[in-house]
Design a binder for these strands. Structure first.
Lengths: 228, 228
DNA sequence: ATGATAATCTGAACGCGTTCAAGTGCCGAG
DNA sequence: CTCGGCACTTGAACGCGTTCAGATTATCAT
């Protein structure tokens, strides 16, 4: 019978404790928001001492990061599948952004912790070193979305399109997180309109009339994304 | 002689204490940054107890707000004067942005506290209720800068120009605060290029070719700035 | 079984921002 | 002169995130 026990325990007992702490934390974050939740409360809810929570997670921030990484891993295949089915850039952007809205909808309060900071030195900032790998995955998705989708940009701008689209998406999500309108209707309106504007804008961007802007934009992007 | 003393003290002794606490705080903020400064340290430096600091300022955040309000009041006339001298939109934008860069240059670390948060519920966020009056003053400056400066936008967009320019300026300042390049050279490059791009862009914005975008942009702005 | 070693867990304690009951000193009315 | 009230000041104490020395439990070679 120690055999069957061992089988039951095969996903390691400590993994279960870790999961219990994570779930307790997320439950409280969702209910009360990140700021108002306390580590003592989380530990009590998970039936461990505070120290145990810190054995599994480096900090309160790190718990949110664990959630974020899990969310990213969960959404990745869904987004990939949807991207394969969509052809136009608009449809592909919808695939990415809608998947995120759907996944994060029950966690809007929690997500606020991940959008509250601009400071790239803050661990939970979307621009932080800690978020770099998730950010890179996201940008890669947008690059895939833009690839052979009909949009043609001057070579000085094209390499930045993925990052620019990521930025657009971040703005949208930021607006969504703090959108107090019924069912976030304002964000949904913004979503539709900006998406349309983006596609129209990208079509117009090819016009030779805008040639002087191309050079400027290229230099600009090179400096912004240069090294930092 | 109690007379002359009274005259000396006429700006009230407590005002002097308040000033001493503020200066102590700013000195430490500048040196070590907002986060790393502690209220105990500030109080010690100002030669008072912690409680006294809280008698004059509601919170650590409130000290930064006091600095921000003072800065705003100090820059206002300088900007107004420079605006009067400038005619083109570009020159006027330069007047506003350059004045701010100059004033805030010795306080970049401190300013980081005011740009670190996107959360509109955080007191130090540029989008917060606490910053609303300063923000309104800023927007009014940009409105003045745009007034009879040659730019003509469709009536669906024109009313938002001030707020859009304010947003542009916030982005620039945000980039500047975290710009680690020598003398913030990258920001200065960005400043020049985006300013040029903005003026070129605003000229192009009148073209009838862009008519479909005008309607879209108008609806968009109405929703974004609708009530929140 | 039996230690030894590592993994897991505990709760007191630290430094932080903040609060507050209790002082201290000053000033004007009596 | 003096006393009541008010502006100002104090520092201990609170709740927070976090740390850490030590206790407890699991693992496993012997």
């Amino acid at each position: 019978m120690s055999e069957t026990d061992a089988v039951k325990k095969s996903p390691k007992k400590s993994e279960e404790t870790r999961a219990r702490i994570l779930e307790a934390a997320l439950s409280i974050f969702r209910e009360r928001g990140f700021e108002r939740a306390t580590m003592r409360e989380i530990a009590t809810e998970a039936e461990v001492a505070v120290g145990a929570a810190y054995y599994y997670f480096d900090s309160k921030d790190a718990i949110v990061m664990a959630f974020y990484e899990r969310a990213q891993a969960a959404m990745q295949p869904e987004i990939a599948a949807r991207l394969d089915r969509a052809k136009t850039l608009e449809a592909r952007l919808r695939a990415i952004v809608s998947t995120k809205f759907e996944y994060f909808a029950p966690n809007r309060k929690l997500l606020a912790a991940l959008t509250a900071h601009t400071d790239p030195e803050h661990p939970l900032s979307p621009f932080s070193r800690e978020c770099a790998s998730i950010r890179a995955e996201d940008v890669a998705q947008f690059d895939r979305a833009a690839a052979d989708s009909g949009v043609s940009l001057p070579p000085t701008i094209a390499p930045y399109l993925g990052r620019l689209l990521w930025m657009y998406q971040m703005g949208l999500i930021l607006f969504w997180v703090y959108d107090r309108s019924e069912e976030q209707a304002r964000t949904m309106f913004l979503y539709e309109k900006t998406l349309k504007m983006l596609t129209v804008g990208l079509k117009l961007a090819g016009f030779p009339l805008l040639r002087p802007l191309h050079k400027l934009a290229g230099e600009l992007l090179a400096v912004v994304y240069g090294d930092a």
